[in-house]
Amino acid sequence: MRQLIGTLLIGLTLGSIYSLMALALVLVWRSTRVVNFAQAGQAIVTTYIAYEIVTRTGVFWLAVLFAVVAGALLGAGVEYFLMRTLFRHVDEGPVAALAPVIATLGLLGVIKSLVGMIWGNDFRSFYPPVSTDNFVLFGETIPFSRFNILVILSTTVVMIIFSFIFQRTDLGLSLRAAAFQPEIARLAGIRVGPIRTIGWVFAGVAGAIAGVLITPNDVLSPASLDVLLVFGFVAAVIGGLESLPGAVLGGVVLGIGVSFVLNYVGTTLIFPTVFVVLLLALIFKPNGLLGSKKVRSA
């Protein structure tokens, strides 16, 4: 029983971080119809920035703040300088559909080697603000720590802020309108170009927070967020790729699944399990966990 609860709690922790990465990917997909592989690269840069701040000052929240600002700027930069240039020059045929995705994949490679050049390829540890030691209850260890509580609480706060912005503000309405029907949005007077950049900014912020939250339980290296990218993408697809609540739910479902396999089976079966979960979701809920046949949910 204790192990079951521990597994669920770990699943929730992992899942909430996958949700953030999934949100980032969905935001970009909705606004630009591009799967942004570079999201992991953007997040690795912001996590190294956070690492520098936290090792120099010891103030975790200052590190988070820097990561968030850097994430916002990087997101805007990639959209403005890379995506717009590509869209301006290749706008027809099969190349136009593929070029941006390939470009983000290339950018991921470039960022990882740059990060390797600057910080080296060795593993570093990222000190958390609160203990990552497991709780001991009645003499038994529960695989859950203060830091995990912090992760769940902070992702919940981020999700609440995001859902407030998207559902309750004019900016959020513009983001949704521009994502679903850019042409009608423009005819209604919405400046779709800048709105798209703002979508990438939110994605950059979500990815940056995911990076700093997952690293204290892990190690930091130029490739350390690659797995998060894959899991975030799977979570996004499970959620239907269009829906923000779907992405969050997809992340949590995947996190709990991964946690069960970790605790009861072992690390070797993680990737096969994720793959099976993805296949099952695509077969039984092709429009996403929350999707209906007729329409995507905003």
Binding site: L173, R176, A177, F180, I184, S297, A298
Partner: peptide, 9 residues
């Protein structure tokens, strides 16, 4: 119209 939004939106 944008089907994903409400009538009001």
């Amino acid at each position: 119209v944008i089907p994903e939004l409400t009538v009001r939106e």
